[in-house]
């Protein structure tokens, strides 16, 4: 933790006027916010509100149609190393063992051969995945795969971790394990930005809430404030369970 404070930070991340179009449909429209160091920010909203797209635009997987995503350090890198990572709704597991999946990501990130093994073992041990190390990743359960995906992202030493509905396909037990992992990461000082449409999860984890609706950022508030009483009618309807899309 203290080590992280010493290194320069890629944060704050500043998003302004962000838009994304597919065909003639504007799926993300004039979204702007800023993410400072620490805490867990939840992007919440009904299906099609633009949560996942916003995460992908921030992570650089998509190119905005308009607006900017700017980091305190050039493209979120420090000394040429990308310091933000992402975990997907459906974990992408390579057709290899759990350990090989992690080593592959470390190699892709340019980590030296000797350090790869050390970091891999550290991550496996850190998240209790050691017993699964030799298992073919694609034959593991959904919960195990998502834990591996988070451990794999963690081994890259990100300062920011984007998560796109990481538990939406998991049973309650696995969901709880993931949430415990996220709380631990937050405690380490990693900045988490997570999309979810699970209100309960948002209440349990969020420090701050960005509420999106139909591609627009409708509300940006501290979590207690938001859950005590949202300012916008859309968010109120969503919390009440009336607004599904």
């Amino acid at each position: 933790m203290s080590g992280m404070r010493d290194t320069p930070s890629v944060l704050p991340l500043t998003v302004s006027g962000l838009a994304f179009e597919a065909g003639d449909r504007r799926l993300v429209d004039d979204v702007g916010f800023s993410i400072a160091r620490g805490g867990l920010t939840v992007l919440i909203g009904p299906n099609g509100s633009g949560k996942s797209l916003t995460l992908r635009l921030c992570h650089g997987l998509l190119t905005p149609s308009a607006g900017t995503v700017s980091w305190a350090a050039e493209r979120g890198t420090i000394a040429g190393v990308k310091r933000h990572a992402m975990v997907f709704q459906k974990p992408v597991m390579l057709r290899r063992s759990a350990r090989a999946n992690m080593l592959h990501a470390l190699a892709a990130a340019g980590v030296t051969r000797g350090e790869r093994a050390a970091r891999c073992e550290e991550a496996l041990a850190r998240f209790g995945l050691g017993v699964l190390a030799e298992r073919p990743a694609r034959l593991m359960s959904g919960g195990e795969q998502q834990r591996l995906a988070i451990a794999r992202a963690w081994s890259l030493r990100p300062q920011v971790l984007f998560l796109d509905e990481p538990t939406s396909q998991l049973d309650p037990g696995a969901t709880r394990q993931i949430e415990e992992m996220l709380a631990a990461l937050r405690g380490e000082g990693i900045t988490l930005v997570m999309a979810t449409h699970d209100m309960g999860q948002a209440r349990r984890l969020a420090d701050r809430v960005l509420f999106l609706h139909r591609g627009r950022l409708v509300e940006d508030a501290e979590a207690p404030t938001f859950f005590a009483g949202p300012a916008s009618p859309e968010a109120r309807a969503f919390i009440a369970g009336d607004l599904v899309w």
Binding site: F88, L94, H104, G110
Partner: peptide
């Protein structure tokens, strides 16, 4: 189609994805 986002996320964009794809598709 299955791997693209993860590979892009860890920096293997474009043709740099090829070795991974060939290796994982080897069977």
């Amino acid at each position: 189609a299955e791997y693209r986002e993860h590979l892009a996320s860890i920096g293997l964009t474009g043709f740099r994805a090829i070795p991974t794809l060939l290796w994982d598709g080897r069977f």
